[in-house]
Design a binder for these strands. Sequence first.
RNA 1: CGGGGAGUGGCGCAGCCUGGUAGCGCACCGCGUUUGGGACGCGGGGGUCGCAGGUUCAAAUCCUGUCUCCCCGACCA
Length: 421
Amino acid sequence: MRRSQLFVKTRRQTPADEEARNARLLIRAGFIHKEMAGVYSYLPPGKMVLDNIKQIIREEMNAIGGNEVLMSTLQNKELWEATNRWDDKEVDNWFKSRLVSGTEVGIGFTHEEPLTNALKHFVSSYKDLPVYPYQIQTKFRNELRAKSGLLRGREFLMKDLYSYSRSQQEHDEFYEKIAGAYFKVFSRLGFSESITFRTFASGGVFSQFSDEFQVLSHIGEDTIYVDKAKKIAVNKEVYSDEVQAKLGLNKSDLSEEQAVEVGNIFPLGSKYSDALGLYFTDENGHKQSIIMGCYGIGISRLMGLLAEHFADDKGLVWPVSIAPFKVYLIRLGSSPTVVEAADSAYEQLTRAGVGVIYDDRDASAGEMFADADLMGIPVRVVISEKTLISASAELKLRTSKEPQIVPAQALAQTLEKQLQN
RNA sequence: CGGGGAGUGGCGCAGCCUGGUAGCGCACCGCGUUUGGGACGCGGGGGUCGCAGGUUCAAAUCCUGUCUCCCCGACCA
């Protein structure tokens, strides 16, 4: 993409109405726009980051048998009454509205009910199970207080997968499988297993207990106890002697840490399937309950955490896997030779499939360098009179101080090699 | 919802205490000069000072109410 065709602009100054580093950087770099507290829009580069995160999640979900669906946002009250989750006393963060006729509708904060209900049309035999539908979409929760930029919003992007299994054992096996897939997702996003912990926690409105995936971070609003050797963690909220014994932990091996919950998986048993009347017939012709689980990943929250985690005093520093563009191409100078060389470098990279943003503005050098840094693009390439003397281009990684000079003709190949690492 | 802070051109701020012609920087427009770390000169456009009442000859400024944003807490996926 040519920079001149990108409508967003970066800002020199930090927005006054944000305290959180993730929101400050993402707004300054032109990735998001704040609509109101806890509600953000995603601008072109921000949407690209979101799409990259989604794609990684999608690949890992598909790899374990997930089927992607898109669920409705408007929710039928009757389904939620069937599971006793409509009443504000049961779920206090519903957004609700009314049809012109006066009928109440909900605005989806999760989707167990409608999905389970829809599956009644497709699941009746043991041969139809297990199934693993999942969705990637906006959820709405009426938080008392939104905060920390993208980390706690009233409207946020989430991946939710729901499992429907024939037995507890089949469920348990999948539950472990998806836990493994989650670690793959987080590690591909840049959160290694050394800072990401599966954490024993409460199940909230979903179930008694759950497993959270917590990434250690000083901005985290959760406090967890971690046994780093055993790679087990417990949320402080549920910590008790009983839990300690159940997990085989030793108080002296635990360290207290702040962490951000990026994923949460819940065993649901047959609570929702039974309530909504979703059953299957087994090999012997007997009606059986279906064991469910639900598995969430906070996608917009992850984007916020990534921005928070991968940044320095100059701006964002995206991991290659999710950067909106891999290369920020800078054209220094406006003489015909420079323009021609930069245009051709742009074409070369685009043809090679390397995502590139080409700064073709007539801006000052410093401004373009500052933008490349602020936007956190992994590789910066400069074409100037100076580099053209030796038919080369200057290449600098966002994470390194020193640039390198590479032959302009071999730009694409060199970059492909660099981006591998 | 309790406590604290803040709303003044698109952005960042000053002015408010002590009422009297709304100001600065950035961004934007025009002309010219510049071009390896957020260039410079000259000229220009843009704001019912969050909103509503009140006090006053006169309100960005004082008073009351209200909305919004941020932080802490409570709560929460």
